[in-house]
Amino acid sequence: MRLLIHDLPEKWDEILRPKAEEVFRADGNYAPCQGCFGCWTKHPAQCFMKDKLQTICQKFGKADELIIVTENHYGSYSAAIKNVMDRTIGLSTPFMTYRKGLTHHTLRYGKKKKLTVYVYGDMTEDEKNTFRLLAECNAVNFGYREMELHFAASAEELEGVMA
């Protein structure tokens, strides 16, 4: 199953629907992660905050391909997308392991096929390089075997880049 998360206006839901079985629009209207680790230690894979993101990591867990469409913010994800990602800690377990020579957490839902990231908006070369590093780290952290990263100068150019 492919899951797509994006931070674009609502009308994009329809445009992006053919790209994935499930499309999730990150509107940013939810609480940020509180760093309590309750999704590991109290109620596994579930957040204590009862909003749209309470069981988001279970949605991520089901998908073997994740597509992220995000606006560039300083070479990182937009706050709305990052908010969703921060709330997916329950995708992993508290146990430590090594991946690519660095310590990481073991994966509750096992290894995944592919992470694809589309970044749109005005971007400097430094920001592109930061995104390359960040997406690579995310792929290892979440256990994706493959990672693809694409840049589009604006939201309008996205359709061409994603075709």
């Binding site: 309750g38 109290k42 596994p44 146990f95 839902y109």
Partner: peptide, 21 residues
């Protein structure tokens, strides 16, 4: 984390299981 999960109760609630919605 084992100790915290015992006190938090998570260890008895499918601690490492693949939870689904």
């Amino acid at each position: 984390f084992i100790i915290i999960s015992i006190f938090g109760g998570g260890i008895f609630k499918g601690w490492l299981a693949r939870k689904t919605e």
